[in-house]
C-alpha cells in the first residue's frame, strides 16, 4: 500500500493533487461528474473584493499543446463568494479548500484575505500576484520583488491561515521573487501561473484574443514549470505547489522530485474534466513502477 499523503503548510492532504484556480470554478461542475472529495484539495476561482466581469470576448484561443486565455478574473466578488458559493461548496466538498484571491492594490489584497480568513472551509489563502490578464493588479504585482514582499506582509497581517503566493513565470529571476515572498512571511509559494502569450488569426490578421495578449497554459509549459520549481526549491525554504502543464501521474512525480509538496492541475481540467480523478487513481501504480512507497519522501529528490 503506497502512501500518497503530504502535508502542505501544516495541513494534511490525502494526496498532493489539487485543481488549479480558474479551471475548476467553485467545484460544482466537477462534482456532477465525480466525488471531488477524492482530491487533495482545489483552489477556487480567483476572487476579488468587487465583482468582475473580466475581459471582452473572445478570451479563449487554442494553440499547439495548450490554450491562451484572457478571462480577466471574472468572479462575483468576495462577499458573494462567502455568502453563496462557499455554502454551496460545503454541500459537495468536506476538505479544506484553497482560496485564490486577487487585488488591485496592496490594500485590496489584504481586505479580501481578511474576509476569507473568517471562512472555516478555507485551509490556505493563495494570493494571485501573477494574473497576466488584469491591468490594475495581478502580474504587475508579481514581477517586482519589493511589491511581492509588501503584498505578502499585508495579507499575512490579515489572516492566520497559511498564505501561499502564486508566482508569475513572466520574470527574469523567479527565485528573487520567491525570496521576496519568503521575506514577507509567506508560508509557501505556488508556481507557475500562465506564461504571457499571443496568437494571430491569419484570416483577420489580428490577435485572436480581444485583449491581444493572454496567459498560455497547457502541457507545453510543463518543462518551464519543472525548471522554476527546481530553482525555487534551491533558493528558498518554502513549501512549493507545482503548477504548469500537469496531465499525468508521471508529471506529478516529476514535479514533486523537482521540489513540489503538492501540485495543481490546470488547463487539462478544461479538456478532460476527469483528469484529476484519473491522476489520483493512476498514482499508486506509477509509484509502484518507480519503487516509491511514500510521495512525501520524493519531494525535492532531484536535488
Amino acid at each position: 500500500m503506497v502512501d500518497m499523503k503530504v502535508n502542505l503548510c501544516g495541513i494534511k492532504m490525502d494526496n498532493p493533487v489539487m485543481a488549479a484556480s480558474g479551471t475548476f470554478g467553485y467545484g460544482k461542475e466537477f462534482a456532477e461528474l465525480y466525488d471531488i472529495n477524492m482530491l487533495g484539495s482545489f483552489s477556487f476561482k480567483g476572487t476579488t473584493l468587487e465583482p468582475r466581469f473580466g475581459n471582452p470576448l473572445p478570451r479563449i484561443a487554442e494553440c499547439e499543446a495548450g490554450l491562451i486565455n484572457s478571462i480577466g478574473l471574472q468572479n462575483p466578488g468576495v462577499d458573494d463568494v462567502i455568502a453563496k458559493e462557499l455554502p454551496e461548496l460545503a454541500k459537495i466538498f468536506n476538505k479544506p479548500v484553497m482560496a485564490n484571491v486577487g487585488g488591485s492594490s496592496v490594500e485590496t489584497y489584504a481586505e479580501v484575505s481578511g474576509k476569507i480568513d473568517k471562512c472555516e472551509q478555507v485551509g490556505w489563502i493563495e494570493v494571485n500576484v501573477s494574473c497576466p490578464n488584469v491591468h490594475d493588479g495581478g502580474m504587475a504585482f508579481g514581477t517586482d520583488p519589493g511589491v511581492v514582499q509588501e503584498v505578502t506582509e499585508a495579507v499575512k497581517a490579515n489572516t492566520t491561515k497559511p498564505v501561499i503566493i502564486k508566482l508569475s513565470p513572466n520574470v527574469t529571476d523567479i527565485v528573487s521573487i520567491a525570496q521576496a515572498a519568503e521575506r514577507g512571511g509567506a508560508d509557501g509559494v505556488s508556481l507557475i501561473n500562465t506564461m504571457l502569450g499571443m496568437g494571430i488569426n491569419l484570416k483577420t490578421g489580428k490577435p485572436v484574443i480581444a485583449n491581444k495578449m493572454g496567459g498560455f497554459s497547457g502541457p507545453a509549459i510543463f518543462p518551464v514549470a519543472v525548471r522554476m520549481v527546481y530553482q525555487v526549491y534551491e533558493g528558498t525554504g518554502l513549501p512549493i505547489v507545482g503548477i504548469g502543464g500537469i496531465q499525468t501521474a508521471e508529471n506529478v512525480i516529476e514535479m514533486m522530485m523537482a521540489g513540489a509538496t503538492a501540485i495543481q492541475v490546470g488547463a487539462a481540467n478544461l479538456v478532460d474534466p476527469y483528469t484529476c480523478k484519473n491522476i489520483i487513481e493512476q498514482l499508486p501504480a506509477v509509484m509502484d513502477k518507480y519503487g516509491i512507497d511514500s510521495l512525501s519522501s520524493i519531494i525535492g529528490g532531484a536535488h
Partner: peptide, 14 residues
C-alpha cells in the same frame, strides 16, 4: 461563442 471547456468551468464564454 468561443469556448474553453464547454461545461461552465473556465468562464471563457461569459
Amino acid at each position: 461563442e468561443r469556448m474553453g471547456c464547454g461545461f461552465g468551468a473556465c468562464m471563457g464564454c461569459s
